[in-house]
Nucleic acid binder design. Structure first.
Lengths: 222, 222
DNA sequence: AAATATCCGTGACCCAGGTTACAGACAAGT
DNA sequence: ACTTGTCTGTAACCTGGGTCACGGATATTT
């Protein structure tokens, strides 16, 4: 029973009709993806709407010089809006997608079905709209940050956003660099500064934040 | 008869029902805005969906240091998606909006009406979806450009996109700088370089592109 | 345990582009 | 014709952060 799982993770879909639920139940498929898997390539045709139910899906571009920059991350309870977009526009996927750190589960609702649902089910329409608009705000704030903040401010903000409940970020410097679109050395340098100022502690493959508050202040100071 | 005007400019709305047309006709309002008018302030409540029918509406943010950066420009036949967004989310407007260079006309469909139309009219839904998704691609490419291209490449690309049919851009250096989120001096410097290389000619308040092709090549060269 | 891969630290260098600080050119109002 | 405002040119300077070139540290595989 696919749909129960979906509804708990995507409460906005609660209003689905019986018929809609059945459609999804019968025709959506679920996939498990291992860590370090390239999932979607730029130019791929998109087979349907992707709903992430566990793990995380990273969507990124690669610029002319070969540097990756993360556009956004799709977490459980979210959907990949680029794919959604492509479902309607029949365009091909305009970026890359990969599973990096944790095994990930995602549900695929085939394009045809999704389009039908979209026209019949208000719940699906709301869902689609909210996915798109959430992503827009996200992109806008990324853009704003990348233009007006210095690297150490962006790093601080990234760490705060990414840390788990224990204040630990389990990523290599290179991973972080890719997310922020910069070089590994730069991240190492800045992290070292933070460590010297007592804001965090560095380990191989992870970072433990010590003073969340001071990290927040990096924003204002300069 | 408001709706005729709308339909010609927004062909995607063609499928509107009689009823929908009437609603718009009766309850939408049209405003003319003069040049150099601050129209929307950050935090304003949004009264409805804005459709631009003439001129242009610039949407921008202001960073901590007081620099403006244009997020996007709404042209005739387009709609301000942030406003659309706010219509549904009941959020306040998260940026600034102004009319800068040319007098602008815009039609406002009150929030309540727009929501009703959205639930009843497939045409309105398609419209909304396409506005959102177009803007997403736009934002993504802006983001990509701002991260991976050098200033002179971004300037070249901006000039190409902004020039009118005669290859003329009627903006001051300061205006351009605001759009690209940089300083006036930087733009002057780069433009001068372009002029020396014969790509364009500078006048007070405007720029005439001479070799569109070479300007495109700035992308590749460096 | 040897070999190989991944990760991290660090110093030296360089440059695009932001900043400061003027000065002259043109436009528009009085 | 002045005055005042807007727009442009330019030079000198400074710095964040990208790049190069390492070497050592910790995992992982064989």
């Amino acid at each position: 029973m696919l749909t129960n799982e979906i509804i708990t993770l995507f409460p906005i879909l609660e209003g689905l009709s019986k018929n809609g639920l059945n459609l999804i139940n019968d025709l959506a498929t679920e996939n498990r993806i291992d860590t370090k898997t390239e999932l979607i390539f730029k130019g791929d045709p998109v087979s349907g709407a992707y709903l992430v139910t566990a793990g995380s899906l990273r969507v990124y571009t690669i610029d002319l010089k070969g540097n990756e920059t993360t556009l956004y991350t799709v977490l459980p309870g979210e959907s990949c809006l680029l794919a959604l977009n492509c479902v309607f526009s029949e365009l091909r996927y305009p970026a890359w997608g990969s599973v990096d750190l944790v095994p990930t589960k995602l549900i695929t609702i085939p394009s045809v079905i999704f389009k039908q649902l979209y026209s019949e089910e208000p719940a699906i329409r709301n869902f689609t709209f909210s996915v798109l608009s959430a992503r827009i705000f996200d992109l806008m704030s990324t853009l704003e940050e990348s233009m007006s903040l210095s690297m150490n401010q962006r790093l601080a903000s990234f760490l705060i956003r990414t840390a788990n409940h224990e204040g630990v970020v389990k990523m290599s410097h290179q991973d972080i660099a890719s997310h922020l679109g910069t070089a590994r050395e730069v991240i190492s340098r800045l992290l070292k500064q933070f460590e010297k100022r007592g804001l965090l502690k560095l380990f191989r493959g992870s970072i433990r934040i010590i003073s969340m508050q001071s990290l927040r202040n990096v924003h204002e100071i300069t």
